[in-house]
């Protein structure tokens, strides 16, 4: 790791101020950023640690409205009793990220700001039509995820919380890469106030995306059988050493079927 200057912020306002020093980057759980810095794939001059900011932590459930603070860890999301009641699919998803030690540190805000094309949370937020609050504005999930490791966040902008309406039915199914545990294909299916929304992670050439074909089929009939015989085009899907685009196109339908069945169970 190259030399870096560490700063610990105690408020969002202080973090925004500290971020103006040099080529600074925000640090939350650090489960991606620190390995990237160790491999010298990232070399910020300064790190602004957000993990100790109290206002960024915690989960609030009021009726069907769920708000998760950006610095809430995957472990906290996976084990929150109120969240498990209204949106069990989101808690389940958080429990599938990495391993227990990673879940103790990694945060939802960090994950979505990084927008890894194989990360789990982007699929949930997109399918749930979540709203991402920052220290400057509110951004709809549809506008937030821009591509591989790209988001709508501007320099110095900090994700503060994520809000969504708990869906009537939802589930996430993930085909894990056996080594990294990242999604080789993950599908989040939600049936809520905006109808059926289906988001796919780990498969798109340009990061997380909604599958209109699956949404159309499931809108007609919210059942795995609605996807029988559906074939997706491998164009715009990722091909790498783990799986070809054709294989991923197949996996999306398989994961979507499993997710619908789980959501209906």
């Amino acid at each position: 790791m190259y030399q870096v200057n560490y700063h610990r912020a105690s408020s969002v306002a202080e973090a925004a101020k500290l971020a103006k020093s040099g080529d600074a980057q925000f640090l939350s759980g650090g489960m991606t950023l620190i390995p990237a810095m160790k491999a010298r794939l990232a070399a910020p001059s300064d790190l602004v640690d957000l993990a100790h900011i109290a206002e960024l932590k915690g989960i609030k459930v009021s009726g069907k409205t769920v708000t998760i603070g950006a610095a809430t860890t995957h472990f906290e999301v996976a084990n929150d009793e109120k969240l498990k009641k209204v949106a069990p699919a989101v808690a389940h998803l958080a429990g599938l990220i990495g391993d227990p030690a990673v879940r103790h540190r990694g945060t939802i805000g960090g994950s979505i700001s990084n927008n890894d094309p194989a990360a789990d949370y982007p699929a949930a937020l997109l399918a749930l039509g979540a709203t991402i609050a920052t220290n400057k504005r509110e951004i709809a999930a549809d506008k937030f995820f821009k591509g591989l490791f790209e988001t709508a966040l501007k320099d110095g902008e900090i994700v503060t919380s994520i809000t969504f309406t708990a869906p009537a039915k939802a589930a996430y199914e993930k085909f894990r890469n056996p080594a990294s545990r990242y999604a080789m294909t993950g599908v989040f299916v939600a049936k809520g106030k905006d109808g059926v929304r289906v988001a796919v992670t780990g498969a798109g050439d340009d990061g997380v995306f909604r599958s209109k074909e699956i949404e159309t089929a499931l809108t007609k009939k919210f059942d795995a059988s609605a996807l029988d015989g559906l074939q997706l085009s491998p164009a715009d899907l990722m091909s790498d050493m783990h799986a070809s685009a054709e294989y991923r196109a197949h996996l999306i339908v398989v994961m979507a079927k499993r997710a619908v069945s789980a959501a209906n169970a």
């Binding site: 610990r8 650090g30 489960m31 620190i34 160790k38 472990f75 103790h104």
Partner: peptide
């Protein structure tokens, strides 16, 4: 492994198991 996969570096920080190769000493202060 030094890449947060193998877990040989696991310690408890404030009562929770974490990979100490993927955390700065300054973060743990």
């Amino acid at each position: 492994c030094d890449t947060s996969q193998c877990g040989a570096c696991v310690v408890h920080v404030d009562g929770k198991a974490v990979k100490s190769c993927t955390m700065l000493a300054a973060q743990a202060s």
